[in-house]
């Protein structure tokens, strides 16, 4: 593996995205702070948090993958001593790590707010984690689409579906009896259905990363 070049590509993406990442993380933390209030601010915080997690993902993918092709800086990049697979690995590593870190901070903050806020029941924690994990998986699916399809239009379509899917997914999970019945409880219940959904989400994420690497390795034309 061309490790030194992959590292160079990752650092380049970090350089161009660090300010946006910091800005979105700050916005995300503000939204988590709003969640701690027992009034309208809670709902504003909820909407803001979901929006921030979605926006960070879209920003990363468009900035590092879609725009690089659209702005023709990909040609410059591919003149460097790298292969299509080195490029793919660098994009997966940077995007996944950057999104995961931002996502993990928001997950920890969300769980902490639920845990310490008297108006929020701890029974919400599994539900919140399932929803936030869905967002992580949706991010991986959008990233895979952008890398494999090389198409801005296809990426926009998948981003849109993923965003609409969050509300739908929230509703579907909330209607599952074995999840719903513990949401207002004072204890987080990690029952079999909850763990199974989390397991399936992780498997889908891993599957899409593997599929991306496989499909990219079979590409004959890259530019």
């Amino acid at each position: 593996m061309n490790q030194s070049m992959i590292k160079t590509l990752v650092l380049k993406d970090l350089y161009f995205n660090k300010n946006n990442l910091l800005l979105f993380c700050a916005m995300g933390l503000i939204s988590v702070y709003l969640l701690s209030f027992d009034n309208r601010a809670f709902y504003i915080g909820m909407v803001l948090l979901i929006s921030m997690v979605i926006l960070i993902g879209a920003l990363l993918i468009f900035s590092t993958v879609v725009n690089e092709r659209k702005d023709q800086t990909l040609t410059f990049l591919m003149s460097l001593p790298i292969t299509c697979m080195d490029y793919t690995k660098a994009k997966l590593i940077f995007n996944f790590t950057a999104y995961f870190l931002a996502w993990a901070i928001l997950v920890i903050a969300t769980i902490a707010v639920i845990f310490y806020s008297p108006h929020l029941s701890n029974g919400l924690i599994p539900y919140a984690l399932i929803i936030l994990l869905e967002m992580l998986v949706a991010f991986i699916i959008v990233l895979s689409t952008a890398l494999v399809s090389e198409s801005e239009a296809a990426t926009i379509v998948v981003v849109t579906i993923a965003n609409i899917g969050v509300s739908l997914f929230m509703y579907i999970i909330a209607t599952i009896g074995s999840i719903n019945q513990y949401m207002k409880g004072s204890v987080a219940v990690w029952n079999k259905p909850a763990l199974m959904i989390i397991g399936i989400e992780i498997m889908i994420g891993v599957l899409f990363i593997g599929l991306t690497l496989y499909l990219q390795s079979r590409k004959k034309d890259f530019i």
């Binding site: 061309n2 161009f16 023709q72 800086t73 040609t75 410059f76 003149s79 001593p81 790298i82």
Partner: peptide, 24 residues
């Protein structure tokens, strides 16, 4: 294309459609 990494260390490539990073 199998040994493109080794070759590219010594190739200077420029094309009409190549762009540099506009913000840098």
């Amino acid at each position: 294309p199998d040994q493109q990494v080794a070759a590219k260390w010594d190739i200077g490539y420029a094309s009409e459609d190549m762009r540099l990073y506009s913000k840098a």
